[in-house]
């Protein structure tokens, strides 16, 4: 286990610097005139230009600039948005509602994926199994740009079952429809992986043993099989987080939820460079760290993975 953790951490450090370096290069390399880009259309005086060059280390080499970017990032200094607000402050005011939305989506997706996945694995080839297969296919084909506006229109406006928008202090009910939309972006793969993994485990020797001992079929499936079947589903969490982030940008924008995603979408629309860069950097780092945690969790849950 110890060797696995060390190796994984070393890989993580490499990926971490590689990924932040790529993001940095995408944002800053070959920019014609970053100062002009910063102040927008207005003309700027030479003194202001000199001051900004000094402050943002624009005369330094590429690597030195990367160093300044990383040290600012790691000390939580993200600079100011073009609107004048501090980016770290905007981030800290917007993340609670996003986390609530994401947690609701994860719970909804997990409950549906596990219940329906196990059920269709037990009744393999049956009506329910084929039905869920069709349903997941449809969900996979629905990008969130289709799902969110259409769900808002049908359930929020036409039928009026849910509020069409949500505020910062949104109630559980107001966040329910966006959370369901977000859950739809990840539930299909989770369901299919659960189903495949349960089908495989139902044939395992330990299941035959458990049955031979005379355990109730329900206990065999929901305790013995399910516990082993969820291991591959957990690895999906890391990938799903990336999907959820992308989904949250669009979903929060559609439902007017003032979270991290809609702030980022606004920043993109208003061409607020510093805001987009700051938010994206923090989200990428969060994604990398969560993936490391998921990998370690996976190794802890499944001893086989350590001896590859």
């Amino acid at each position: 286990m110890f060797r696995y953790i060390v190796r994984r951490l070393l890989q993580m450090i490499l990926t971490f610097f590689g990924a932040t370096f790529v993001v940095f290069a995408l944002m800053f390399a070959n920019q014609d005139d970053p100062i002009q880009a910063l102040v927008g259309e207005k003309p700027i005086s030479d003194t202001l230009r000199a001051e900004l060059t000094e402050r943002y280390h624009l005369d330094d080499g590429f690597l030195s600039q990367y160093w300044h970017y990383m040290s600012n990032l790691l000390t939580g200094d993200l600079g100011d948005s073009l609107t004048g607000r501090e980016i770290s402050e905007m981030l800290s005011s917007s993340w609670p509602v996003t986390v609530r939305l994401a947690l609701m989506a994860i719970v909804i997706a997990a409950v549906i994926a596990i219940a329906a996945g196990v059920w269709s694995a037990i009744r393999r080839g049956g009506l329910f199994d084929n039905g869920t297969l069709m349903f997941t296919l449809l969900l996979l084909a629905m990008p969130v740009v289709v799902l969110a506006p259409v769900a808002q229109w049908i359930f929020g406006m036409e039928l009026g079952w849910f509020p069409a928008t949500a505020s910062r202090n949104a109630t559980f009910y107001a966040l329910l429809l966006p959370a369901i939309v977000l859950a739809c972006t990840v539930v299909a793969t989770q369901l299919r992986v659960t189903r495949t993994s349960v089908v495989e485990n139902l044939r395992a020797d330990y299941v035959r043993t458990a049955r031979a001992k005379g355990l109730a079929p329900r206990r065999v499936v929901w305790v013995h099989v399910l516990r082993n079947s969820l291991i591959p589903v957990i690895t999906l969490i890391g990938v799903d987080l990336g999907v959820l982030m992308s989904g949250a940008i669009v979903t929060e924008d559609v439902f007017n939820i003032p979270g991290v995603g809609s702030k980022l979408a606004q920043g993109v629309r208003t061409e607020d460079g510093p805001l987009v860069v700051g938010f994206v950097s923090v989200l990428v780092i969060f994604f990398l760290v969560m993936n490391l945690v998921v990998d370690l969790l996976y190794a802890a849950l499944d001893p086989r993975i350590r001896y590859e």
Binding site: Q11, L14, T15, F16, G18, A19, V22, V23, L26, M27, L241, G242, M245, S246, I249, L264, V268, E271, V276, V277, V280, L283, V284, F287, L288, N291
Partner: peptide, 22 residues
Amino acid sequence: SRGIDIVLGIPLLLAAVILSAR
């Protein structure tokens, strides 16, 4: 392979938003 890992380590939409705008 490490190069592939690095690109995979960045959620698509986040990088795409920046690159496409640039």
